[in-house]
Write a protein that binds this DNA or RNA. Structure first.
Length: 422
RNA sequence: GGAGGGAUGGCCGAGCGGCCGAAGGCGCCUGUCUUGAAAACAGGUAUAGGGAAACCUAUCGUGGGUUCGAAUCCCACUUCCUCCGCCA
């Protein structure tokens, strides 16, 4: 959510930013009109309240019954007037809030302008695409052949876009989770295990609601929303809090399953385990001061990249264009790993500086050490990494001619002595 | 699921429908004193919105209601605690 004062003062700049995202800019004009209406009403209703407060105090001290009665009836009328104005103000504020909640974040100045993900800019590529002296297989052939990945069972249990990992496959994923969490702890993150279902207000705070309700699973009998990413509870955990400056930056990491309806992308990526309704992810998250956010974004990209490096995967870092930038993001890098079987760069991580966009929705501030006024923190989030695609990359990169899969060096301690899955 | 008791500032804790944005204490900040510190003493110390400013408005878990006026009365909800039941 953007600051209404900022919009008021920098209307043209905000419009330009919307235009970069290929959005209509009319909403800014209506927001400014609503804001003016709102301030008019506040001026009016608050002066009336001031009068009522003053007269009510007088009434409390008055002895003369008649003039007392006349004041009371005058205040009764004023009270009705105030109630009507309050009602009107409430309506205007709700409209303003809804309008503001629908405006995306301002892209950072160095975000390339583009239409979609094709305009994302490759910043660097690390490693060479692996070459084999045989024809590499895709994971959807490798996995079932080894008996570690079962698409039919997933469909039987839950339908399309579900699969079952078993044996060394399930264990490999668990090893990745353990190893990633340990790595992030070494990198200075604190591990959290949050609820995987949250209240509606938490979904709103992190920016998923109201806009993306269609992509979420929701229990209609209780106020429970299944998290689409650990970013949601990791934002919510500090909702409404004031953090001491000395505590910043706060680095958090969490493993959760993620649940997504993926309604928008029906028909895309249907094959394999690339895109499912349920997937596991290890997430990194930061609360920091605004002036450090840019540096912390770079740090987080480096932390995620380290994960790919230690796994021995070829990867590239991309800067998202304005056409691909998600609703709440100020600036986002993607990390993609090369999957030689399905011949694809797979997005395993998306690392974003959200600025104060979420903090404003979630009301998360910090208290500067010098005692000056409270400030909104900045928040950052990034996958470290998404498990299914990491699994794909590991399976396809570490495959051997006979269809077996070598366990990456860093995962061996977690595999109970299994060095090759066969 | 049933019964009962709570929720007040950074923390603890008072609070009769009006003089309560809220006593008192602790903590913190500033000053006096001191070579320095401690102690003592004095003053200050919530958040948000509006306003050029003076200042005004709102907030005592949340949302409604009663009233000229609500921390205080009424209703609903959230949450914590105690007891009973159920349960991995």
């Amino acid at each position: 959510m953007l600051d209404i004062k900022f919009i008021r003062e920098q209307a043209e700049f905000v419009k330009d930013s919307l235009a970069k995202r290929h959005m209509e800019t009319d909403v800014i004009d209506s927001v400014i009109a609503l804001d003016e209406k709102r301030r008019e009403l506040i001026l009016d209703v608050e002066s009336k309240k001031a009068e009522r407060n003053a007269v009510s105090k007088e009434i409390g001290r008055m002895k003369d019954k008649e003039s007392r009665e006349s004041k009371i009836s005058a205040m009764r009328n004023l009270g009705d007037n105030i109630a009507a104005l309050d009602e009107e103000l409430k309506t205007v504020e709700a409209e303003l809030f809804d309008a503001l909640a629908g405006i995306p974040n301002i892209p950072d100045a160095d975000v390339p302008i583009g239409l979609d993900d094709k305009d994302n800019v490759v910043i660097r590529t690390v490693g060479e695409k692996i070459s084999f002296d045989f024809e590499p297989k895709a994971h959807w052939d490798l996995g079932p052949a080894l008996g570690i990945l079962d698409f039919d069972a997933g469909v039987k249990l839950a339908g399309t876009r579900f699969y079952v990992l078993e044996g060394a496959g399930a264990r490999l994923q668990r090893a990745l989770i353990f190893w990633m969490l340990d790595l992030h702890i070494r990198q200075g993150y604190r591990e959290f295990y949050p609820p995987w279902m949250v209240r509606e207000e938490v979904m709103f705070a992190s920016g998923q609601l109201p806009k993306f309700a269609d992509n979420l699973y929701h229990d209609h009998q209780e106020d429970f929303w299944w998290v689409p990413t650990a970013e949601v509870p990791l934002t919510g955990i500090m909702m409404g809090e004031v953090i001491e400056e000395a505590e910043l930056p706060m680095n958090l990491t969490s493993y959760t399953a993620c649940f997504r309806r993926e309604k928008m992308s029906a028909g895309r990526d249907v094959r394999g385990m690339k895109r499912g309704h349920q997937f596991d992810k290890v997430e990194m998250y930061k609360y920091c001061k605004p002036e450090n956010a840019s540096q912390e974004l770079d740090n987080m990209v480096a932390d995620a990249a380290k994960t790919c490096e230690e796994l021995g995967l070829t990867y590239r870092v991309l800067l998202q264009s304005t056409g691909d930038l998600s609703f709440g993001s100020h600036k986002t890098y993607d990390i993609e790993v090369w999957a030689p079987g399905c011949q694809e760069w797979l997005e395993v991580s998306s690392i974003s500086n959200i600025g104060q966009f979420q903090a404003r929705r979630a009301n998360i501030k910090y208290r500067p050490a010098d005692g000056s006024a409270l400030q909104f923190v900045n928040t950052l989030n990034g996958s470290g990494l998404g498990l299914p695609r990491t699994m794909i990359a590991v399976m396809e990169n570490y495959q051997q001619a006979d269809g077996s899969i070598v366990v990456p060096e860093v995962l061996k301690p977690f595999m109970g002595g299994i060095e090759v899955i066969r």
